[in-house]
């Protein structure tokens, strides 16, 4: 464990608490893409199945359980408890355009041709693009509640912090994971536009609004 990864994980944890806080305090999931949340639940379930047969550490175990449980809980909140506040007519990104290519990529790029390794690869590729329905929704509405932008910023910072972690591990542990690194770079790149508006507007105390 190094500080980059620790802060990355903490940022990921924070993003989920911010999202829960947004839903509970506004009693609404307006502005949140159900599709993106469903993709994250898929990502965590596909990747963390190793919970059942591989012990890494208490930290690792707790985080995995938390990410699976919280993502399913968020889906429940959106689908049942706050269902009327979710507007499917603006959450229109076609997820099959993400799922299909990720399956193909996992079949092409993996470390071993076994079910867990294919699922791991698939989850890495899917995670890198899972934010697209959310960004698409943001693009369509052109604005976002401030708390929603904090959620997105914390979520984007998580994978961005994994990049220095990989560089650090390359030098200290001689570890290279080309699949995770490539996907992580793509994932972070997708946030660049958002980060720009977040830093120049939200952090200056203005509302998050995209230029018309």
């Amino acid at each position: 464990m190094n500080l980059f990864r620790l802060f990355g994980d903490l940022s990921h944890l924070a993003s989920i608490f911010i999202l829960l806080q947004k839903i509970q305090s506004t009693r609404s999931c307006r502005g949140i893409s159900f599709k993106t949340q469903a993709l994250y639940a898929t990502v965590f379930i596909a990747r963390y199945l190793d919970l059942f047969y591989e012990w890494v550490s208490l930290y690792n175990f707790t985080m995995k359980v938390f990410f699976i449980a919280s993502s399913c809980y968020i889906l429940y909140l959106m689908k049942y408890k706050y269902r009327p506040t979710h507007d499917p007519s603006i959450d229109t990104f076609r997820v099959e355009y993400l799922l299909g290519p990720c399956v193909v990529l996992a079949l092409l790029f993996h470390y071993k041709f076994t079910v867990p390794e294919l699922l791991w690869s698939f989850s890495i590729f899917l995670e890198s693009v899972a934010i697209l329905p959310q960004l698409f929704l943001l693009q369509r509405t052109g604005e976002a509640e401030t708390i929603t932008t904090h959620y997105l910023a914390a979520l984007g910072a998580y994978r961005a912090l994994y990049i220095p972690n990989w560089i650090y591990r390359y030098f200290t542990e001689d570890m290279v994971d080309p699949i995770a690194v490539t996907a992580g770079l793509v994932q972070t790149a997708l946030y660049l536009d958002f980060f720009y508006v977040y830093v120049t507007k939200v952090l200056q105390g203005q509302k998050f609004e995209l230029p018309a």
């Binding site: 985080m63 990410f67 591990r169 542990e173 570890m175 994971d177």
Partner: peptide, 10 residues
């Protein structure tokens, strides 16, 4: 070993 290290990431 690389595989094991890979799985300690979240």
């Amino acid at each position: 070993p690389v595989e094991q290290k890979r799985h300690d990431e979240l």
